[in-house]
Design a protein around this nucleic acid. Structure first.
Lengths: 343, 343
DNA sequence: CGTACTACCGTGATCGGTGACGGTCACGCA
DNA sequence: TGCGTGACCGTCACCGATCACGGTAGTACG
């Protein structure tokens, strides 16, 4: 029993087309007619049916979101994905686009669900986060030519691009901070290497170490997988070295927390014996004791950048999309301190 | 350039209606025709346009999700909402319904965005989580007669119901656990009282205390607001009492963590001096040291129950919806221990 | 052989909008 | 007066599907 445009047209004594024009803010409607129509529409509580609208306009004003909370497998949760989602949602709320949540499952008929859902619902664009960018499904989506934006994952194509924080400079900032505190024996725990965030953060670590004239002893680069256990294990390995580090840069907060626990388990203190820096500034970072020094990504800014980028790609047919790289920001908390004086 | 049903019809030498029938599994199509059509559809990669479909069928196969990460205001994040979202998403993935994310902002024309989006997109149902159930917007949505299900928030109406964990028995289990460890001076920190979860957990606390024959001294019931600072402050208030408790039940993990920090700040240990139990089993609970004993909600089960409930309401025009109450489960970690022997 | 019934399929209306196109009318100007 | 112009609005053909209805052919049955 919803009121439709025909009803509005009848009650205001004009044709459906005029109602459509008036309500869509098109110019060729007289002011008095327009306001009469608006009045009637308000009274009747009329709002346009989006399916019908989308059908004829060939655009849905909807974007899809592929949102996975765990990388391949599901060993645990990546809490920063919630922040990313919130950032995106807030940024999107201003644009008039709606958001549809897509699950990365394959549909029954074999065609991948990503592409299928995007097609079936006529999604104007898709945002990806938390999925592996090398998944065939993702590649199929990209190459389908639909506008895509990756958040913290590197997708590229004629109508695809990504937003990420600058993992290289972020990592460099972390190391600079430690160097400024007098640390020279600085190790790192990386994420799993196929992921661009892990690679770039490692690169930043190496850059900054070289720049500071510090060398990286054998075993100072431990590869983890972004989950807490790997931080714990990697830290244990570092502690077992002949020359254990006085500071550790973990390429993810969860791993940093695991490392802090390993340090505590070994009877050492943070930052008294070893300083720890993380990356991401997840909620946990502020809660954990001692508070974790980390590199913060501004999720709101990332969300806004993603929305801006996506709308550009969607609006400009042949807009050459530029990846957006936002700077990370060092948040100093209690997990880092001056190097312990040599005994 | 998408292939439509007309194209499929032409290539398989039948009418559009027959294609529609065949692909929707309707009976009155001969087997040979059906398989020929399916063959053609597969070759062409045809999938039905959902907008057109929804338009004529008067159902969108889409449900809306109102998902707020912070209760009124935005003092912080409630991390268990991510888990709820994941649970819901997984449960929904099996049903063929898609999920649309709704933002609780008011639209320009004054009609509330909840109702408006639900109407405009013809959503078949709505799931609510993380919002205050007393918001006028929410009430408007409920009374619009659209099928609604609340997750961990109590909405009721002819076509609305909710799923929640049994906060009363969960809280009772927490207290039983503490009593079994020999505690007698047990305090509680509640969430903000308008929220049903806070009210019920307090009720469970009182029940179990009475059942155990323990009385609740003045000041043993502190009201917090589900955020970490309130846990911290409430714990300080409890420590300042003449007869401070030996155990604290916090009606939310974030508050429990705040309480643990306040205990540590006071130079006391958990659980040596004071045992702490939380509620929700958020990620933090496992990471924090000592690990937090807490009541776990099975988010997957909640998601499944919500989906089942919603589909029932949507399918049965006059189905009297029953609220689903799932049991919580006690997870014992390191934050609780036997009561300290009297000195 | 005529009729009834079943199985299968096509026709045309419809869902609720939008947009191209064309028509009317008042006005300005030669 | 005649004509061009622009502002405003209605008509009609879609968008891509579904569905009610009707038609046809083949079979069974009296």
């Amino acid at each position: 029993m919803r009121v439709d445009i025909r009803e509005v047209a009848r009650r205001s004594g004009v044709s459906m087309a005029t109602v459509s024009r008036a309500l869509n803010g098109r110019p060729d409607v007289s002011d008095v007619t327009r306001s009469r129509i608006e009045e009637v529409a308000r009274e009747l509580g009329y709002t346009a049916n989006q399916q019908a609208r989308a059908l004829v306009r060939r655009r849905s004003d909807m974007v899809g979101l592929i949102w996975e909370t765990a990388y391949i497998g599901s060993k645990g949760r990546q809490p920063f994905l919630q922040d990313l989602l919130v950032g995106l949602k807030m940024a999107l709320a201003d644009t008039g686009y709606h958001l549809m949540l897509l699950s990365p499952q394959t549909a029954a008929n074999g065609v991948n669900a990503f592409v299928q859902a995007a097609m079936q619902h006529g999604l104007d664009g898709v945002v990806l986060m938390g999925v592996n960018e090398h998944l065939p499904a993702v590649e199929a989506l990209i190459s389908s030519g639909r506008p895509c934006v990756g958040l913290d994952l590197q997708v590229t194509g004629p109508r695809a691009s990504y937003v990420t924080s600058n993992n290289v400079t972020g990592a460099e900032a972390a190391i600079h901070h430690l160097v400024a505190l007098g640390h020279e024996r600085i190790a790192t725990v990386t994420g799993n290497m196929p992921l661009i965030a892990a690679v770039d953060r490692l690169a930043g670590y190496r850059n900054a170490m070289a720049e500071a004239g510090l060398d990286i002893p054998e075993g100072y680069e431990q590869e983890g997988d972004f989950f807490i256990e790997s931080g714990h294990e990697s830290m244990q390995a570092l502690l077992a070295l002949d020359n254990p580090p006085t500071a550790v840069f973990a390429g993810g907060d969860t791993m940093a927390i695991g490392a802090m626990q390993a340090i505590a388990d070994a009877g050492l203190t943070v930052p008294g014996d070893i300083s720890v820096v993380g990356y991401d500034d997840i909620d946990h970072a502020a809660i954990v004791r001692p508070g974790l020094t980390t590199i913060s990504q501004d999720y709101l800014a990332i969300g806004q950048a993603a929305v801006r980028l996506l709308t550009q790609i969607m609006d400009d047919e042949d807009h050459e999309p530029q990846p957006q790289v936002l700077p990370g920001r060092l948040i100093v908390r209690a997990s880092t301190g001056p190097v312990r004086p040599a005994t």
